[in-house]
Design a protein around this nucleic acid. Structure first.
Lengths: 195, 195
DNA sequence: CTGTTTACTTAACAGTGTTAACCTGAGTTT
DNA sequence: AAACTCAGGTTAACACTGTTAAGTAAACAG
C-alpha cells in the first residue's frame, strides 16, 4: 500500500473513530509512521486531504444507492427504496455521511466549486428514476431536476436531524423515518397526479 | 455595556463576517481591547462561548417565527407562513442559522444534552399549530409531535442544501423553495385527510 | 564517479485553546 | 488611617495546530 493510501486510510479511521477535531496532520502522520510534512508530498494541504476523504465518502454513498436501483420495480417502490437506502447509509455511517456536508465551499475558496457539487452524482440517480416515471407517464412533473433536488433535500433534512441528535428522545427513530418517507413521497406524488 | 456583552457581540460579528475559522479567542480579545484570558472570566471555555452564541441565534429564530403566528388565519396558510418564515430567516441570516446546527453534541460532551435540544423551542411553535389543527378537527394526525418533527426536518433539509451551496446553479432558489414548501405541506395534509 | 531525482526529515514560524500565577485598584473592616 | 478582601483584569507559559524552507540519504542514470 502506498503512503498516499495509508494516509487516506488512517485519516478516515481517525475521523470516524475520534471525530474531526482529533484529525490533525501530526496525529495522522504518527499513526502512519511518518512525519507530518510527508503528508504534504501527497496532499497540497489539509483541505485537500479532506476533499479526498469527501470524495471517497460520496463514492460509498453512491454505491449504496446504486445497489437498490432496480428498473423492474414499481416506480413508487423505487422511490421509497432509494429514500430508505439513503437514510440507512447515513445512519449506519454517520461520520462518513457527515463529512460530505461538513465542509462549506466558502470556507475552502481555493478549491473548485465543482468538487462540492459532486454530491449530485448521488442525486442524479434520483433524477433518473423521476425522469423514468415521467417518460412512462406515471407522473407528470414539470421539472424533474427540481423535483429530484426537493426530495433529496427533504431526505437530507430528516437524516441531518437524527445525526445531529436533535430528535426528541420520545420520538422513536423508526417511526420518524417511516412517517418522513411517507410524507416525502406522498407530497411528491400528489402534486401533479389526480388522486 | 459589560465586557461579557462586548465579547458576545464581537464574537458574533467575527463569526458572521469572517466565519468560524477566524473566530479565535485572541482575535475576539484583541477586538474587545482585552487579553484572551479575560474571556475566561465570563465563559468557561470556547465551547461555552459558542453555546451562548447558539442560544442567541435560537432566540432570534424563534422571534422571527413568532412574528408570523396568527391564530385567526387559515390552518394551512399558517403552516405555509411558518415554513416560509423559517426559510427566509435562514437565507437572510445564513451564518446565524448555521451556528445553530454547527456544533454536534458529541463534540461537546461537557455540556448538558438539554442545551442542544433547545432548538425545540422553535419547533414547538409548529407543534402547537398542528395540535390546533387536530383540536379543530381540520386534520387527523395520530402524533402531532412526530408530525411537527417531520415537517421541521424537511424544511431544515431544504434550507441546508441551499446554505451549503449544494444546489445546482440551474435551479432557481425561489422556484426550489416554492416547490419544496408545496411538497412538504401536501405530503403532510394528504396523509390522513380524505381528498 | 558524478549528477539528479525521489522520498522523506528537521527546524522553524505564527498561530491556537487553556492554565497558573500575578497584579492593581476599589471597597470594607478593624 | 491601616489592613484585608476581592473583582477584574494581566503576563508567561504549555502543549498543541497547519504550513513552509531547507536539508538529507538512498536509489538510479549517464
Amino acid at each position: 500500500m502506498s503512503l498516499r493510501e495509508e494516509i487516506l486510510e488512517v485519516s478516515k479511521d481517525i475521523l470516524i473513530k475520534d471525530g474531526f477535531g482529533k484529525m490533525s496532520m501530526r496525529r495522522i502522520a504518527r499513526r502512519a509512521d511518518v512525519t507530518a510534512t510527508s503528508i504534504y508530498l501527497y496532499f497540497r494541504n489539509k483541505d485537500d486531504l479532506l476533499l479526498a476523504l469527501i470524495q471517497e465518502s460520496i463514492d460509498d454513498l453512491k454505491e449504496a444507492l446504486e445497489e437498490v436501483v432496480d428498473p423492474s420495480k414499481d416506480f413508487i417502490q423505487q422511490l421509497e427504496d432509494m429514500a430508505r437506502a439513503y437514510i440507512r447509509f447515513a445512519l449506519d455511517h454517520p461520520r462518513e455521511y457527515e463529512i460530505i456536508y461538513m465542509v462549506r465551499p466558502e470556507e475552502m475558496p481555493k478549491y473548485p466549486r465543482e468538487k462540492f457539487n459532486e454530491v449530485r452524482s448521488a442525486y442524479e440517480l434520483l433524477a433518473d428514476i423521476i425522469d423514468r416515471g415521467k417518460q412512462e407517464n406515471i407522473i407528470d412533473v414539470d421539472d424533474p431536476l427540481i423535483s429530484a433536488y426537493t426530495i433529496w433535500a427533504q431526505i437530507h433534512g430528516v437524516v441531518s436531524v437524527m445525526l445531529n441528535k436533535r430528535l426528541d428522545t420520545r420520538v422513536p427513530r423508526e417511526k420518524f423515518t417511516d412517517q418522513a418517507v411517507d410524507h416525502i413521497i406522498k407530497g411528491f406524488i400528489i402534486q401533479k397526479t389526480p388522486v
